[in-house]
């Protein structure tokens, strides 16, 4: 955990997160990432009892469950209203594949 990500790793993370960063942003992001990872590496020092269960949050409570009842859906025009591109029926997105391959 103390090893800090190299430049290519920052690149990979940016790709995994689908965030375009230019070279300069990659460098500065890498530096900040390094700085924060350095800081959080103090967690390594925390000694844990063997059987400690992780706490993922949320109050430990009863099952939150709903009955299988239908509810009215939101009218399509209201749902599509926020879409950057739609044809009134579908969301439209650029083609999944690049045009270059056969």
């Amino acid at each position: 955990m103390s090893e800090t990500p190299e430049q290519p790793t920052v690149n990979q993370v940016a790709r995994l997160a689908r965030i375009h960063l230019d070279d300069q942003q990659l460098t500065s992001s890498g530096e900040k990432l390094e700085q924060i990872l350095e800081f959080v590496s103090q967690l390594e020092q925390v000694e844990l009892p063997k059987d400690v269960e992780p706490f993922f949050g949320a109050i430990e409570s009863v099952n939150a469950i709903r009955e299988d009842n239908l509810q009215t859906s939101v009218p399509r025009e209201k749902i599509l209203d926020n879409a950057p591109e739609s044809d009134g029926e579908f969301y439209l997105v650029p083609p999944v594949f690049r045009n270059t391959d056969s």
């Binding site: 790709r15 997160a17 689908r18 965030i19 375009h20 960063l21 926020n82 879409a83 950057p84 591109e85 969301y91 997105v93 650029p94 083609p95 999944v96 594949f97 690049r98 045009n99």
Partner: peptide, 24 residues
């Protein structure tokens, strides 16, 4: 991701749309 809500960046294909949208 530029599909359902408001901002979408200019792009030629899907991957580019994701990265540009989230980058900008």
């Amino acid at each position: 991701d530029g599909v359902r809500y408001t901002f979408r960046a200019q792009a030629n294909d899907l991957e580019e749309m994701y990265r540009n949208t989230r980058g900008q």
